[in-house]
Nucleic acid binder design. Structure first.
Lengths: 205, 205
DNA sequence: TCAAAAATCATGCTTTTAGAGGATTGATTG
DNA sequence: CAATCAATCCTCTAAAAGCATGATTTTTGA
């Protein structure tokens, strides 16, 4: 009996690539694909799936949220995060949300098959490149940000100054500054440039 | 006689996906793939190619530079830029460097085939999504940056301050500041946060 | 070769950030 | 209920960034 796989990614090329790579493989069967979270959930309701490959960047909701939804509604479905370099740091969040592993999209066929094997056996799979190839100042994990911090972060990225942000959010400049300091602390950086670079690399802005 | 295609991308999945999409298509033949610029150039030296699909983010040199190299050394080869959302703005630079068009990686099969047809006929191809889906404050074009400006930009993104950058580059703080001001001007922004966000979105850092 | 562009430096001024050290309120939750 | 945490506000200082204006020297490309 073959492992039933659902692929969720909004890039037809990735979909096609994975399908093609897995097509001629014994014991593995791509039973469906989806390009957004809603279709993915719908598919899971109506079909039996062993492993769901989840892209981290989806048009409607983030892969992280989708992962949570899937594990909540379909706990028997194992999930594998699909990420690119820049999203490495997201992965720990996926794992926290119940993912059984992750694959970077530049993985070769061997990695992918190994991942499926491991995960299907109830284990976890992590690309080895994960730890070594962490480029330029990526944090170990995506810091947990509060609602307000996220708002402030976005406004900083849009180029607003503290006074402007204060005006926008109807709060005092000192409060904005507090959030700003907290952001710097949580990202373990010491200025706006690094902050924005990291946040951008993590897809937060 | 079929159109001979070379695909240059460092993601096996994209390579596989494109190959798979084009495999069963009449009149189109993927004659080779490369995952970096050096391999691509080598392949072009030894093989006849009609159209080269060039990923914008390659491990060794940027797709923009590769595009230039290809057009210099192999003017008869037509080039098609492969980009993701975030790199839209790069595309104009590719066109300036002689590319015959671009495809975003989320294109479907129809788009890809149409692109090949157009380009092979001597025309240009642009995804329609290009103009409409320009998100959050992207500039019309990627500003042209000088060598020094790029260096300074990277160091800013790494979180260095003007004094630190000055020390690093063995130049005066005022000079660093000049470059910084020029960067702000060229990107049409007024602070570091916006600058880094844009630069990150364009894959410059 | 000659003009444009790049890289270099300076001065003075204002605004914004970064950093330290608090303090208060309200909600959540074990 | 007490502890925790988010969100709010405060003062003060020093450092850095932003803005204007202007100038000299290399490079480089047409």
């Amino acid at each position: 009996m073959s492992v039933k796989i659902l692929i969720v990614d909004d890039h037809p090329l990735v979909l096609e690539g994975l399908k093609s790579l897995l097509a001629d493989t014994e014991g593995v069967q791509v039973v469906g694909t989806a390009s957004n979270a809603i279709d993915a959930i719908t598919f899971l309701k109506n079909n039996e799936v062993d492993i769901a490959f989840l892209d981290i960047n989806l048009p409607d909701i983030s892969g992280i949220d989708l992962c949570k939804k899937v594990k909540d509604q379909f706990p028997e479905v194992k999930t594998l995060a699909l990420s690119t370099f820049n999203e490495r740091a997201y992965v720990s969040r996926m794992i926290q949300n119940g993912a059984s592993g992750y694959l970077i999209k530049s993985s070769g066929k061997e990695d992918i098959l190994e991942a499926i094997e491991q995960v299907q056996a109830g284990g976890y799979f992590m690309n080895v490149q994960f730890d070594q190839a962490a480029p330029t100042g990526a944090p170990k994990t995506v810091p947990f940000l509060t609602r307000r911090e996220k708002e402030v972060l976005v406004l900083i990225a849009e180029g607003l100054t503290n006074p402007q942000i204060a005006e926008q959010l109807f709060i005092s400049v000192t409060t904005v500054n507090s959030h700003r300091q907290n952001l710097l602390m949580k990202f373990e950086v010491s200025n706006t440039a690094s902050l924005i670079k990291l946040a951008a690399g993590l897809g937060l802005i």
